[in-house]
Design a protein around this nucleic acid. Structure first.
Lengths: 220, 220
DNA sequence: AAATAAGTGAAGGGAAAACCTCCGTTTGTC
DNA sequence: GACAAACGGAGGTTTTCCCTTCACTTATTT
């Protein structure tokens, strides 16, 4: 993704990606102090491999942040290319970001004024601001279309996405996945300025108590 | 709250409440494996005091669950008493529950099939089901009033409340508080079946980038 | 206001978790 | 098939967390 992977062997590059992916998940679930050994385990690599690529936690955090932002960038591009209307683009974008479990700013924000930032002269922060800027334009357009409620900021949206994406620890991954999808649709309804058919149901699976308990049992 | 506090000295009872309150917060933030020492610290008591009242983690978890459910019970009572319409009652209830940072089921669910349950013969689970039952009636009434969207289950609502209540670790308590309030209103909009005025803004403070950074700085 | 029993916090030993390096083995690449 | 690159796990060190013991403090009771 960056040129820092240039001279790497194929397997090394693959492992590096898996480490970042695992770190993305775990940082989202547990925060940026998630145990490095667990990240390595989830990535399916030895702990030494992780340390070889990322000399310390900060390096990993920064890379995850960069990676996440590159993903947001790409998804934004794609969403606007595929949808003529801003509201359509915005909804697709949010669905994708949640699906990818991007807690973009989780690390970026945490590090925005700390050590993780050092060594890149504020490039991370600049990138963040650029993305928020583009998001703001999208928002403004959707509002001018009359589709998006007024008073919504890019920050609201991104922080909303982060919170939605974040799994609840006790529920297990299956139930969390189901739930996150449903909650996102509700979030989008809340953002939508266009009147609902008064009786329009949340078109989705209705969770029963028995099912809930079954899911919980499955999650141990 | 229960009769188990009967023979306690006044200071002991006070400390006990503070421990439960701190545990409620930390279980919500970090899950039920939050360090007991941190709970004691936040409660402003020594670690020995915690162990004296709650011989092990399960005892504390169970008590927090009971306490949370009693609170939900009381707030439900109050909300329905103060509002003739179910939608009004429901919105007040959710606002209160979020305000109280009740992750009701966070512990209950986690324990629904495990060790925490032992020793009370399923009373905890029965209580949970009873609350969900009452919530369901409230929901049905609100739907019959034409105020609440169809297809919403009590489980959706309670899990939504939990997720909303849960602070994002990096943001600091001030910003989290602000954000949680805003996100709840959005959630309520998504639940509401009644048409928004197409341009109705989220009537609230618009968060700017500068402000965000200031909050983050304040949170360390 | 003295007696007493209940309650308290802090220190610290032991166990577990997390960190991080070293090194013999495996795997891509030329 | 040779060589450099990459790998994973073992294990020593540090940190965190658990939980008990104990000398001191505070509420209550008469």
């Amino acid at each position: 993704m960056t040129e820092s992977t240039a001279g790497l062997r194929a397997d090394a590059r693959r492992n590096r990606e898996q480490i970042i992916a695992a770190a993305r998940e775990l940082f989202l679930e547990q925060g940026i102090h998630a145990p490095l050994e667990e990240i390595a385990r989830r990535a399916g690599v030895g702990i030494a491999t992780l340390y070889r690529r990322f000399p310390d936690r900060h390096a990993l955090v920064r890379q995850v942040a960069l990676d996440n932002m590159a993903l947001v960038d790409a998804e934004m591009e794609r969403a606007t290319a595929e949808h003529p209307d801003a509201w359509g683009a915005l909804t697709q974008l949010l669905r994708r970001l949640v699906e990818l479990r991007i807690g973009v700013f989780m690390p970026v924000l945490a590090s925005s004024l700390e050590e993780d930032m050092r060594g890149d002269g504020g490039a991370l922060k600049a990138k963040r601001n650029e993305l928020l800027e583009r998001m703001e334009q999208l928002i403004r357009t959707a509002q001018d279309e009359g589709q998006l409620r007024r008073g919504v900021t890019p920050i609201d949206i991104m922080l909303g996405v982060i919170k939605l994406s974040r799994p609840l620890p006790v529920l297990g991954s299956e139930l969390n996945e189901l739930l996150i999808g449903q909650q996102l649709e509700l979030f989008l309804s809340g953002l939508h300025a266009v009147a609902l058919d008064a009786a329009e149901p949340l078109s989705r699976h209705r969770l029963t108590l028995d099912e809930l308990d079954r899911y919980l049992k499955a999650a141990e």
